[in-house]
Amino acid sequence: MYSFSYVKPGSVEEASGLLSNSEENKVISGGMTLLPTLKQRLARVENLIGLEKCGLEKITLEEGVLKIGAMATHDDVSISKLVKAENPAIAELASQIGDRQVRNRGTIGGSLANNDPSACYPAAVLALAGIIHTSKRYIKAKDFFVDLFETALEEDEIITAISLPKPEKAAYEKFPNPASRYAMVGVFVAKFEAETRVSVTGAGEGGVFRCREIESALSNQFLPESLSDIDIPAEGMISDIHAEADYRAHLTVEMAKRAVAKSLAR
């Protein structure tokens, strides 16, 4: 690792001030991606800005909507009574990220800011039409995820919290990579009164996306059987040594079926 200075600002304002000072400054939350990157010398920073003293870990209900602080760890989210009551699919998703030690350090804000194409949270946030609150503004999920590892965040913008509307039914199913447990394909289904939204992570070449074919099939009838005859194109799906594009396309439908069944059983 190249050497750097570690600073712990006491507020988000202070943190974003530091961030805008230099392009060589970076924010760190749980560090589950950034630290390995720094260790391999794939990145170099002047100042690492730790957010642990900014008070961003609270999970609250704000005007009836679940709001999760950016620094809430996956473990915090998975055991939170509030999350379990309001949005059990989120608690369940969080409980399946990585391993225990990753869940004890990794945060929802870090996961979203990184926008790894195989991260689990982006699927949930997009399917639930979540709102990403930042140090400057709020961003709708549909505008937030831009491309692989790319978000709408500006250089000196910090995620502070995420609001997630409550669906009637929702569930997440992933096909984990057997060694590393990231989502080779992960599907989040969310049924609202007015619409059904389905997002897919791990599969798309451009990162998380909404799957309209599955959405329209489910909007007729929200049942796993509605997806029996669905075929989604392999075009635009990731192909790698773990799974080829057509396999990922197939898994997407399969995970969606399972997610629907799971949400109905809840």
């Binding site: 390995p36 473990d75 030690q101 350090r105």
Partner: peptide, 22 residues
Amino acid sequence: TSQCGACVIHVNGKSIKSCTML
């Protein structure tokens, strides 16, 4: 590289991988 868990310790009662924390 945060994979093997040989470095697990408890920090404030939670297990963490000490090779991936400063």
